[in-house]
Design a protein around this nucleic acid. Sequence first.
RNA 1: GCCCGGGUGGUGGAACUGGUAGACACAAGGGACUUAAAAUCCCUUGGAACUUGUUUCCGUGCGGGUUCGAUUCCCGCCCCGGGCACCA
Length: 828
Amino acid sequence: MEYKPEAVEKKWQRLWEEKNLFKAEIDSTKKKYYLLEMFPYPSGRIHMGHVRNYTIGDVVARYKRMKGFNVLHPMGWDAFGLPAENAAIGSGVAPKKWTYENIDYMRSQLKRMGFSYDWDREFATCDPDYYKWEQLFFIKMFEKGLVYRDRCFVNWCDSCKTVLANEQVEGGLCWRCGSQVLLKEYDQWFFKITAYAQELLDDIEKLSGNWPERVLSMQRNWIGKSTGTLIKFKLDGMDGEIEVFTTRPDTLYGATFMSLAPEHPLVKTLVKDTKNESNVLNFVEETLKEDRFTRTSEQYEKKGVFTGRYCINPVTGLKMPIYVANFVLYDYGTGAVMAVPAHDQRDFEFAKKYGLPIIVVIEPRGEHLDPLAMEQAYEDEGVLVNSGPFNGLKNKDAMTKITSHLEDMGMGSSTINFRIRDWGISRQRYWGAPIPIVYCDKCGVQPVKEEDLPVLLPEGVEITGKGVSPMEGIDDFVNTKCPRCGGPARRETDTMDTFVESSWYFIRYCSPHENDRPFDPEKTSYWMPVDQYIGGIEHAILHLLYARFFTKVLRDLGYVEISEPFERLLTQGMVIKDGAKMSKSKGNVVDPADMINTYGADATRLFCLFAAPPEKDMDWSDQGIEGSYRFLGRLWRLVDELKDRLKSTEDQADGRPGNLENIKKKTHHTIKKVTEDIDRRFRFNTAIASMMELVNELYKVKDTIQDNHEDLAVIKEAIENLVIMLSPFVPHIADELWYMLGHQGMLLEHPWPEYDATWAEKSIITLAVQVNGKLRATIDIPKDTSEEDATRTALSEQNVKRFVNNNKVTRVIYVPNRVINIIITASK
RNA sequence: GCCCGGGUGGUGGAACUGGUAGACACAAGGGACUUAAAAUCCCUUGGAACUUGUUUCCGUGCGGGUUCGAUUCCCGCCCCGGGCACCA
């Protein structure tokens, strides 16, 4: 009988479904294991990246289940988002219809791959039953002050016609469409992620070792903590003060001017009704026209304009001119920088350009710096000069001393500054979760009442892709009553960033059909946290940081007990073809559907796992999958040829392996190796390689197998364990071969094999023999041979003798079962 | 500039915690089977040299070091990928 993947796979997929094999239920007698892969956006078809991601996950899920864990392995759809709207613009099909049709098709594709999902838990984030709870969280966060509305400069993508979060701007370009991001002033809603910045940073330590170091490093960078000092500078000749953040309070005595960001609100006040007003406001306007990326690139020319106003250095009393400078960022620190030209390169260049004073306050030990002769700022360490009572201190020591001096004066304080900004979540889009807010002329901003949730997304909305929120024109939606006074009011027409939905879906999977509340606490506390999360590295900051934040918020709202959602994280590499990421424009896309049709789901799965370890990029190779397919055929023929003979024998060869001792050893060695490879580091490629070796060994002895009990039992043990161990990788063919071998049932319900240590370990080992560190021979000797015996055997080797000759053996290094190194010195 | 990750045959990749570098697979070559081809099965395959061997030398980005022994540890570089960055 020939191996026909399609027939085999469809048969078992049907049987698994009939049996509801993948259903997960709480079972307090078993250890739980929650395995999750990042859910897909229903873009239309499954691509190779999905196949790889979900195959890796499926192997782990099936393996853990066979190991006796109660496994939760759910799947659903990250279903809100821009492509649905773009499709609507292109073809006129409603986003809802487009999305659900894609889901239906992609679900069938995932089922065709044989993934072991508990489909009863499936949901799409665009289901009102789902986003209803997100709206509830929004309201709860609003009540707690974790949501606020602010008018501010935001990243605007003119192509997507929407606001983007900082995390969604990559190198000045929109993360989705790649067009230039502009700054635009806009009212929008924010989640106060900065309130959790310290905890998000601290908890990174807890994840260390279980998350890839580069993801943690990226998150640390993104949070961007720096410690420094806040210093107040009084304005000269008018009320008010400027506050700055600096990490270099030791240079305060050298601060000679002040730089403000163009967006700084004080700028307008300072120049109001002065002769500088039009000049300064022109400069501000010009600067803000520049896109953010150009403005903040290092090559960009540093420019500024004098406001005509001064502030006072709190320790020297110096009148410092206040400038507006294009390189000062409004959203870092306080948006104002005290300029110390002698010790900061940017300030130095600025001072030279505009003829501002330079005061040296730090000198390297034993050296004198002349401000007039300096060609660049001195940014290194040294000793304080020109700094009043602090002269002679090392600058490091001066930092805390000057800060506490400022604290005594009431002019400053030590502080911590974060780079991370609050998460702007308003999107001027239709296909997203409506923000549950109502604007009333009398009562102001009001959250929708809980009992009125969900705020349903209206249907039949015309999507043009132009202008602002498509829902603004839907009177039925916009016009509503104020939840407080009952008077006429208007709804918020923006929707939430789709990253909000993916920030909590993993908790909803624990009780997906809960109607009266977002989660069933009993189920949540049983299943959470996710034991193993698997997904692409591209979400290292965005999704993974938001999800961590949201989990902490939900904890503080009393919904969950955990602080971190994902115990362990595996970031799988990309699928590459011909040296480049698969993309339509490069024309190197391999459609998984074609692979399944030609080679079957099992061969496709096998190749994804075999070609590279999961965290590395994987090169797709048409010959490679051919090879995986060949291996399955080879396995099939082996079982098919021997099955009838094997059925006729009892299971165990009562410990006496007859002529096939090597096979018995190899079998147990393979069980050990495969188990460890999966457990230790998800090394599926080497696990598969060792099973291929066992198959190769079996082919070598195949024609010598005797029809006696010893031989057949050894072969039976080898083949049956092989099939069992292959089942997480290639579940369909494994179940079919198991059936061909005369068994009932499905291997997912079969326990994972245990190895017998006496067989797994070799009794005769190959010892490397070195002379002066160079390999000269190998000898096969019993395991744990004494040094004396090993030395004697080694020295009797021909080639060893040749090198030892009549030189004196001065030393012998013996590492049992590995190497023996004979050290000789030349005799004269 | 700072922080992560990586560099091994023609290719994808192995090598536990310092102990035989190149498992397994692809590609290539050879053989068996066949009228033939495909499929299948078997063998060879890091480079060089010669005395063709149970041989020698070289070889894991480069240069040093530690060690009986280094792909693995240390120091100094080079290159590739990624993150952060006029961040005060």
